[in-house]
Design a binder for these strands. Structure first.
Lengths: 135, 135
DNA sequence: CTATTTACCTATCATTTCAATAGGTTTATA
DNA sequence: TATAAACCTATTGAAATGATAGGTAAATAG
């Protein structure tokens, strides 16, 4: 299941996309609009800034801003950044140590197919699409 | 992510489908073939029996057997039985209390679409398809 | 009848993950 | 210099996960 971290991250991104272009929005404003605790939101925004998906500026007049136009973000990258990976099973996680049963596993092809499906779905929807319900 | 419970359940089902028809297979045999601890496997098989997708018979000569031909099981029902649900997010879980932000949530339609995609994928693959890699 | 084989049942455990909170530090602006 | 803001590290409580332990009931074989 997709955790709240990724879900909140997506909501924040759509929120910021809806604000005035080229202005910094303080965390507090986002927290109020999205009804998410400031402290928890902070940890999520930290991840987004580290991943270069958002820019943060300190001090008075500071806040957060998108680094690209909404059409240049995919939903997939936002989820993957916050969630770590969108692999459907542990054995397909990046860096998972190769399973000894890999060759004879009857279910591995299923998980691979589903993983590909999931990847395609989320990486073919942009933030703009998400806002416009265009998917 | 799909937990080991559902993953093991699927492996057990494919394993049983590959055994002699109309014979009861002891848990111990399955555990050895699938390299799963007997005790843990027990708890999974209990779920499958309760869900009527396996039949269990006690005593000497007993064991487990499929209740239907492999083509009459969907992968979806097996996952859902063991996993509880295949909802992608908490707010779409069966019996989740209605979210107050439901109307204005920018991401809910996305999760619904993804949930439908997931459901369709898994419910359109039978156990037979899984065995034959036919999906 | 008795020993054996098997499923079934209840409880417990250790570890990890998840969601959230707390309190402080740095940076920029007015 | 006061204030507003992001940034940083650590901690917490609760739940889920994966697994183990020990016993009970039923069926069969000898």
């Amino acid at each position: 299941m997709i955790s709240t971290k990724a879900r909140y991250a997506l909501r924040v991104m759509t929120d910021l996309a809806g604000q005035e272009k080229n202005s910094y929005i303080p965390l507090k404003d986002i927290a109020i609009r999205q009804e998410i605790s400031e402290k928890y939101l902070e940890s999520i925004l930290k991840t987004l800034v580290k991943g270069n998906i958002l820019k943060g500026v300190r001090g008075k007049g500071g806040g957060y801003m998108l680094t690209r136009p909404p059409k240049d973000y995919t939903v997939g990258e936002i989820i993957e950044l916050t969630e770590g990976s969108l692999a459907p099973v542990a054995c397909l996680m990046p860096g998972a140590r190769s399973c000894p049963r890999r060759e004879k596993c009857a279910t591995l092809p299923l998980w691979k197919k589903y993983g590909a499906l999931t990847h395609d779905f989320f990486y073919n929807i942009t933030l703009e699409d998400l806002i416009n319900n265009n998917f």
